[in-house]
Amino acid sequence: MSAEYDVSESTRRLLEEKAKRRLFLREQFLKLKSDPFRHASNEGGTVFDPALQRYQAMKINTFEFFRPTSKNALIALAFLVIPVSLSTYCMHTSRSNAEHKYRTGEVAYKDRRFKFI
């Protein structure tokens, strides 16, 4: 049977099931989209897409199943804590050193940087 196709029997069945589901959803979509009584349902003209809502709900509900693990801690350190603290430290030291030089008169007023902010 599967000799007629270039995919295995199980893959073929999976693809057929997917095509069947796609056809069903396409028909459902066309039915909802062309429903003349849609505006009377008071939900607006667009067809509500549950998958889109599931995606948005997943994005804002990740805290519910969040567990502190070493991997999560590493990600937070690498992308939040270390960059923020490093840039804060660099900026603070450079600006403090410059301010010290200005106040002790090592730099002429005309050579100051960031004079107007």
Partner: peptide, 9 residues
């Protein structure tokens, strides 16, 4: 299920 919080997505 490594605590990234995506549940069954």
């Amino acid at each position: 299920d490594d605590g990234s919080g995506r549940g069954d997505y």
